[in-house]
Nucleic acid binder design. Structure first.
Lengths: 336, 336
DNA sequence: TTGAAAGCGATACCAC
DNA sequence: GTGGTATCGCTTTCAA
């Protein structure tokens, strides 16, 4: 394990000079600089991060918090895209990433605040936490910059980012309306999260604007329950011509139910999902869906964190664009 | 930012004593210990990781290397499972995780070796690297413990882990044989990786053992090409009754091709994939496939790393169990 | 342009 | 049981 001393000694200079070279400071002759670089290379030397972190005191690591254990479902897929977005931007901005799962923190009997301090973190990007997690309050009231993904929390040093779920859902209703649908059922996610709530809200606003009857099926993001509940609902409400589901997974469940009841999709029944997970392109018919740009969410989360750090003014909510991917599971309604 | 000094001062003891408490060392009276803990809590103090790392000199961080940028495809899904496995085990063993993408390292103009040294890493878990990456040689010849996932490299301080692709593929051939299939086509992945090669090898061994003709379709893991190539092949080889695909994604492509050519799956044509990505349960018919336990791969990778660190003897290759998930895309062949 | 030296926060040895 | 202190590897100020 080579240290700055080894390099200094071999180069016949002081450690201070070596340090300057590695930090791009000026005040070193080109000649010395070259020599030092050469020797460092030869020795396979690279500054010890802990030491420089300690000496510098500057924070250059971002903490990313996920509750990985939950990811038993297809959610897997979008998680990695968000992470990807975070990583690429973080690199660009020169941050390192330390990833934590909610249970890491617990296991160490450490709260988020302590976690940040002990790791000297610049801030936290948090996803998949319960809004009423007891740790949160302390964190939000602290000086630690935080960006929440898909969790509606904001404060002085805290903001959040997601797609504009409300608007997206209004859009979907309008599109279905344009396709002559009017009895549109909405299959909701678990209504504990702000995301699920917002999607429902968008549906309601859209429907009310058209003066159309609401058909809300309260579900829980699972394929199985979406299947069961939509099937039941359809039996009592044969007037339904379209289903709008708050997730792609539920949309598959609904699709199964429709087919089992003898409906042809999209001829007799239109279905549209939410998330644009890649499997939507592999099923038949290909599923229409609201496409979230997960990569972009992660990307911007890092930007936001930096903004907070630098004391820039930030919005309470930040939205990332979406688009509606119309594929083969939706068509014009001819049933009226 | 509270330090150990603040705690010591407030508690009226020396920093040495505080340090002992936080490291669970004995030699502190229960009374003092309690007082210190209380005060630390009050101050929201937690040891600075850089400082203790520096002082202790021990390595307790594992580096995880991924090439995230590649993940444009459904591979996304298994990546997160591997990561999940790594994380959970790492926590259990008391390691922190630092994640890096191949391009992080490049951007910093840092090689893996330097990366490890500068971060004082206990070792590296690497996935998705090209086997002929120029950086690798230096790394493998170094003293850094490395565990490769799905890359067939081993050495003194280096080993690798994956499912036993060869055996798994032999098994599949045998199962299809048991279903009376004999003209079984194999759709391969991009043959640059050891994984793809092994799967092909398994198929070949299995087929040769039965003395059956080989039908190898060299593909590239993409759905589109699997679709095209299998369709072509089928036109010239109507004797084929089953397709074995080296990935689920390709299996969907083949499925499309078969259906388009008027085959009924599984009645006229059996298809089996590889990976058991979750979408295989959403398509019709549900896809039979070889299920990899990605979580377990990540999990064991950490164990292996620790074994190497501790100087335990390790195998050149390490295999994780698989099982074959027979679903609706395969059935007995009646065509002979 | 260069270097001596004072930290950064924590650990661990050794003396009390 | 407790504490003084050298030490870890690096940064930074200030004087030469």
């Amino acid at each position: 394990m080579k240290t700055i001393n080894d390099v200094a000694q071999l180069a016949g200079v002081s450690v201070a000079t070596v340090s300057k070279v590695f930090n791009g400071r000026k005040g070193v002759s080109e000649e010395t600089r070259q020599r030092i670089i050469e020797i460092a290379e030869e020795l396979d030397y690279f500054p010890n991060h802990s030491a420089s972190q300690l000496a510098r005191g500057k924070r250059e690591t971002i903490g990313v918090v996920f509750s990985l254990l939950e990811s038993k479902t297809l959610q897997d897929e979008y998680l990695i895209r968000i992470i990807n977005g975070i990583f690429n931007k973080a690199e660009l901005l020169g941050y390192r990433i330390l990833v934590f799962t909610t249970n890491t923190v617990e296991r160490n009997n450490q709260n988020f605040l302590q976690f940040c301090r002990s790791n000297n973190l610049a801030g936290l990007i948090i996803h998949g936490l319960d809004r009423d997690d007891p740790q949160l309050e302390k964190l939000i009231n602290s000086e630690i910059p935080c960006v929440f993904i898909d969790i509606n929390i904001s404060g002085t040093k805290t903001t959040n980012i997601s797609v504009d779920n409300v608007t997206a859902c209004i859009d979907v209703v309008n599109i279905l309306t344009g396709l002559n649908h009017q009895h549109i059922a909405f299959v909701s996610g678990n209504l504990h999260s702000s995301v699920a709530l917002d999607r429902l809200k968008g549906y309601e606003i859209g429907m009310k604007a058209m003066n159309w009857p609401l058909h809300v099926i309260e579900c829980d993001y699972s394929k199985e329950n979406a299947y069961k509940l939509s099937k039941d609902y359809l039996l009592y409400h044969p007037e339904i011509t379209a289903f709008f589901c708050a997730s792609d997974l539920m949309a598959v469940g609904v699709l199964d139910a429709c087919i089992e009841l003898g409906y042809k999709v999209p001829e007799d029944m239109s279905i549209i999902g939410f998330d644009n997970l890649s499997f939507t392109q592999h099923i038949k018919p290909q599923l229409s869906t609201v496409a979230q740009n997960f990569y972009e969410i992660g990307n911007q989360a890092v930007d936001l964190l930096e903004d907070i750090t630098k004391g820039k003014k930030i919005e309470d909510h930040n939205y990332v664009p979406y688009h509606i991917e119309m594929r083969k599971s939706t068509s014009r309604n001819h049933r009226i």
